[in-house]
Amino acid sequence: MTLTLAPPQSPADLDAVRRLCWDYRRHLADVSPIEAELTETFYPVPKYRQLMDTLAQTHARPTGFILLAKLNGAPVGCGMTHALSPDTSEIKRIYVDPVARGQGVAARIVTELMAQARLDGFARAVLDTSKNLHPARALYASLGFAECGPYQDIPAIALPHLVFFEAPL
């Protein structure tokens, strides 16, 4: 097994990241009825399509970063960051295809994103996840993230269903 992590190097790589992000959206909608409702409310297809169309700009260097994980050359995971403030980097859309889960891919993605954010001068990384995504919550805790309050404005309907994390860089 050969796992590589790198920013997208070609249009095909960026398309692979987009496909993984769409898989992530479908995964969230399948977790439970509330996640399905929240996904459709906050990321309806037209809005998510626009987000995917501007992914490279939203997460562009030098304040953002996109990683594509490949296992034996096949795209299996992704994650990205963008600046929330001069000292805070937000980690977004950590997703690993089911065929590659349990092999440490997500931990490697998060670790690399944190390392790049640190190199870019950020002092803190933040992220949020669904309360129902227990493996994700355990992963973030194992990587040194601590639960915190919301770090940006979140609609009240979503607050009871999310967990917010932060970690010093």
Rank of each mutant, 00 (worst) to 15 (best):
G144W: 11
I109L: 09
E112V: 02
F122L: 01
A141Y: 00
L139D: 05
A74I: 08
E166N: 08
T81W: 03
H161L: 06
A138W: 00
S10T: 12
S89P: 04
E37R: 12
D87W: 13
C78V: 04
R118K: 14
T111I: 13
Q103C: 15
D23M: 13
D15L: 14
G102H: 11
T81S: 10
I154D: 03
D120Y: 02
L5S: 06
D23I: 10
A167E: 05
V163R: 14
V105N: 06
L28E: 05
I157F: 13
T54V: 10
K131C: 07
R93Y: 13
I34W: 07
P150S: 11
E37F: 02
T58I: 07
H27G: 12
A106K: 03
R26W: 02
P46I: 07
T129N: 06
P62F: 12
R18Y: 02
D87V: 13
V31M: 12
E35C: 14
A146D: 01
Y48N: 02
A158Y: 12
L162C: 09
L28T: 04
T81C: 04
L159P: 09
G77L: 00
I154V: 15
N72C: 09
A36H: 14
G121D: 03
F65S: 05
R101E: 00
R26Y: 00
